[in-house]
Design a protein around this nucleic acid. Structure first.
Lengths: 334, 334
DNA sequence: TTGAAAGCGCTAACAC
DNA sequence: GTGTTAGCGCTTTCAA
């Protein structure tokens, strides 16, 4: 049988209350008692039972997180940053993947809630289908959305300023001399897909550039490659292609290489995210970086502020992106 | 206040015992009671408290996992496979990253144990420094090592048959005509690094190939690139380079590209793992795939078999790899 | 079949 | 400063 605080108390010759006090150190005990209890605890190899403590305290010290998939390196980076931030606050991260399925997502949220996590961080996989589960969860625990969000309002969010990101990407290729620019993104089932497309269109209009119908598929390199082949098969290459994320851009680069199109001489390519592989592909990818650490910090801050049932203004924090110029785009002529 | 089983019982006009029985459905109750209890539960929006259940049942339905880092796509794939497998068994995965630090690793294990996970899956970051914490954890909960393992024996393990993997890689490049072959791997702080190096040397000897001193750094593309530059600066390029994992190979490919060395014409490159990006780099990477799903299945099976304190033979399951030939290696002349 | 009650391990009143 | 005890929410004896 496992050793409990009762065993420690008995071994130290004190009551469980004293043992508890000595162990937590949050209440006064005589040095003698503290000494005996601590010795007994180490002697017996006492391990406090977090489950019992959680039941008693009504708090678990755990934050639950649901992401669409950990195959996407952006989410991985985000998770790592969040895990570090939370650990500084003495909390643990309970991570789940929804596998891009709103049903699984809803189930994971329920599980997390039944495990009484102290808060929830979620990147909803579908802007519409995820809404009921997310809203219901938000009513039962502090919740903050990260990166993606659901359409229905009223829930806090921390993410990228997509308009600014797309503006940076478009202005950069325009400054490099591009006149026609294409967009390869994701089907509009999530907020990132929508925001990035509309940000792109806005920026293109403002810059007075020419564009073609956007190519919309998935945020994967497979789709990037496929879209690249579509472009290759078209009438005429655009001067530049802006991609909805780096994965797409990496796939596109491969398709262009295969098609014998030189980057950036014949066409410039820009991604979004700045995942690790962006610097490794050929040529290294110019991209708009998401300040992941900053986002993690903000997300945790918002989460700690939320007190359930308390009326407060909804926070929507859009973080400014940062253009990282590598070699898939021509520099501005000076 | 949250609704508890007491509220449900009261609303249904029965005792908590009956409510519990009706809700779990594992014990006989009259249809009438079942009906009333279930209606009350849905009416009130009852959510069972998993913490209380865990305290009572002494089981949480949760498996804890500690990986060195989720930045490495191999671990990501592994985690996803494991998560799916566990979900089929109705268990949840509590994922932690040790960030390649044995101290953090030990702390995460303690946390997981105090949260009373039903089992532990770990890929220890250091073959020596991880040992005390892993052994101690193994004494307190069913534990299985995946991929990497600690030197001290006595603990179950599921992973790749590294000797076979390296043999496949070496024999493949030999069949393609290579006479001299280099190895770029990781410093020998973990079992994968050691096994892959020794597997390489064994295979090279057996094949009668020539080799040079292995280049040992980290399992990252940064190191792959750096090692590539070292190779470029040397006297003479080997006919083939076998890499300790795909990340290294991807970095190497980039260095070779920069150095103007053509792959596979001038030098063949082979990786290990078969991560998603392996098919996207330039040229697409020939690699030895780890059968991740099979490993996940085995790991879960072993974990469920372990009954604490029960003496049973240690299981060490090495799974056969599968060579995936892409374009960084010349095919066998036929 | 149902209800009362014990108890999982812990902490915080409360009383001394 | 210390001990006794209630109670967090649940399931499962044990009696009826």
């Amino acid at each position: 049988m496992r050793v409990t605080i009762h065993d420690v108390a008995r071994a130290a010759g004190v009551s469980v209350a004293s043992a508890s006090r000595a162990l937590s150190g949050r209440r006064k005990v005589t040095p003698d008692v503290a000494e005996r209890v601590n010795r007994a605890a180490t002697d017996l190899g006492y391990q406090p039972n977090a489950v019992a403590k959680a039941l008693r305290d009504q708090t678990t010290g755990t934050i639950g997180m649901v992401v669409p998939g950990i195959g996407n390196p952006f989410f991985t980076t985000m998770v790592e940053a969040l895990e570090r931030r939370l650990q500084e606050n003495g909390r643990d991260l309970l991570l789940c993947s929804s596998q891009y399925d709103p049903l699984i997502e809803a189930r994971r949220l329920e599980t997390l809630l039944s495990r009484r996590v102290d808060g929830l961080i979620i990147s909803p996989c579908d802007i519409e289908a995820s809404a009921p589960a997310v809203l219901s969860a938000a009513g039962r625990a502090p919740l903050v959305q990260v990166d993606r969000y659901i359409e229905a309002g009223g829930t806090d969010w921390v993410g990228l300023d997509d308009d600014a990101a797309l503006a940076q990407a478009v202005e950069h290729v325009a400054a490099g001399g591009a006149r026609t620019v294409a967009f390869i993104g994701s089907r509009l089932m999530n907020s990132s897909a929508r925001l990035r497309l509309s940000g792109f269109q806005l920026a293109v209009d403002r810059a007075g550039l020419e564009t073609v119908a956007p190519l919309l598929g998935e945020f994967t390199h497979e789709w990037g490659m496929q879209a690249g082949r579509l472009l290759l098969g078209g009438d005429r290459m655009p001067d530049a292609v802006v991609c909805g994320n780096d994965e797409i851009a990496i796939g596109l680069l491969r398709a262009l290489r295969l098609g014998g199109v030189r980057v950036p001489q014949e066409v410039a390519v820009v991604g979004i995210d700045d995942v690790g592989h962006a610097a490794m592909c050929d040529p290294p990818l110019t991209t708009v970086a998401q300040p992941v650490d900053e986002m993690a910090t903000e997300a945790v801050r918002v989460l700690e502020q939320v007190r359930l049932g308390e009326r407060r203004p909804v926070q929507r924090i859009a973080i400014a992106p940062r253009l990282v110029v590598r070699e898939t785009s021509r520099r501005t002529e000076e």
